[in-house]
C-alpha cells in the first residue's frame, strides 16, 4: 500500500503540475474575486471565509478526473484489482495521494491567500484548522465520484455534477467554522460536525468507491 502511495506521489511530481496546478488555480480564484466584488476591504473580509473554502473546493475538483482515469487507460487498474491489495485499500490510498498533492498544499497556502482577502486575525487559525479537517473528506468523496465515472469517455463534467452536491455539508460546516471563529462565537458545534463528517466519510465511502470500481471493471 505504501508502495502505491509512493508511486502515485512520484507520478504526480514527475508529470509536472501535480502539486502546483491546484494551488495556481486557488490563487487565480482568490485574485479574481476582488475584480468581481470590488476592492473594498470590509466586503472582502466578510466574504473571505466563504471564498477561500469555495476556492479550495474548486481546486480540489480540478484534479479529480485524473485519479483513476490514467490507471484505467493504461491497464494498471485491472492489474491493481487483481493484486493482493484489497480494492478498498487502493481507493483509500488514491484518495490519500490526491489529498497530499492538492489538499495539503491548499491547507498550507490558505493563510497567505487569507491575507489577500483581508481575513481577520483569528480567522487564520480557524481557516487552516477547518481546511485541514475538511479537505480529506473532499478528496475521499471526489474519489467516489471518480470511481463512478471511470469508464466514461467524457466524465469530467458529470463528475462535477455528481460530486458537488456531496460537498455541501463539508462546505457549510467548514465555512461556518471560519466565520464563527472570526466573529469570536462558539465554534464547538461546527468543529465537531466537520470532524465527524470527515471521519465517517473516510471510514465508509471507500467501500462504495471500491464497489463502483469493481462494477466498472466488470
Amino acid at each position: 500500500m505504501i508502495a502505491l502511495l509512493a508511486r502515485d506521489l512520484a507520478l504526480a511530481v514527475r508529470a509536472g503540475g501535480g502539486f502546483g496546478l491546484g494551488l495556481a488555480f486557488f490563487l487565480i480564484v482568490v485574485t479574481l474575486v476582488p475584480f468581481g466584488v470590488g476592492p473594498e476591504g470590509g466586503v472582502l473580509a466578510r466574504i473571505a471565509p466563504g471564498i477561500l473554502w469555495l476556492g479550495a473546493l474548486l481546486a480540489c475538483l480540478l484534479s479529480l478526473d485524473r485519479i483513476f482515469a490514467l490507471d484505467y487507460e493504461d491497464g494498471s487498474l485491472d492489474l491493481l484489482a487483481t493484486a493482493p491489495i484489497p480494492l478498498e485499500g487502493v481507493v483509500t490510498i488514491k484518495a490519500a495521494a490526491h489529498w497530499i498533492t492538492t489538499g495539503l498544499p491548499l491547507v498550507a497556502a490558505a493563510p497567505v491567500f487569507g491575507i489577500l482577502l483581508h481575513l481577520e486575525g483569528a480567522g487564520f487559525f480557524w481557516l487552516t484548522a477547518s481546511l485541514a479537517l475538511g479537505t480529506p473528506a473532499l478528496s475521499v468523496l471526489g474519489t467516489f465520484g471518480a470511481a463512478l465515472t471511470v469508464g466514461l469517455k467524457r466524465g469530467g463534467l458529470l463528475l462535477s455534477l455528481l460530486v458537488l452536491p456531496l460537498y455541501v455539508p463539508t462546505l457549510i460546516f467548514g465555512a461556518e467554522l471560519v466565520r464563527r471563529g472570526v466573529a469570536g462565537m462558539e465554534t464547538t458545534t461546527p468543529l465537531l460536525m466537520l470532524a465527524g463528517i470527515t471521519a465517517a466519510t473516510v471510514a465508509l465511502v471507500p467501500f462504495a468507491s471500491a464497489a463502483a470500481i469493481r462494477v466498472n471493471l466488470r
Binding site: P165, L166, V168, P169, I172, F173, T189, P190, M193, I197
Partner: peptide, 11 residues
Amino acid sequence: FAILSRYAVNF
C-alpha cells in the same frame, strides 16, 4: 448526504 445536507442547511 442529502439528509446530512438537510441538517447542515438547518444549522
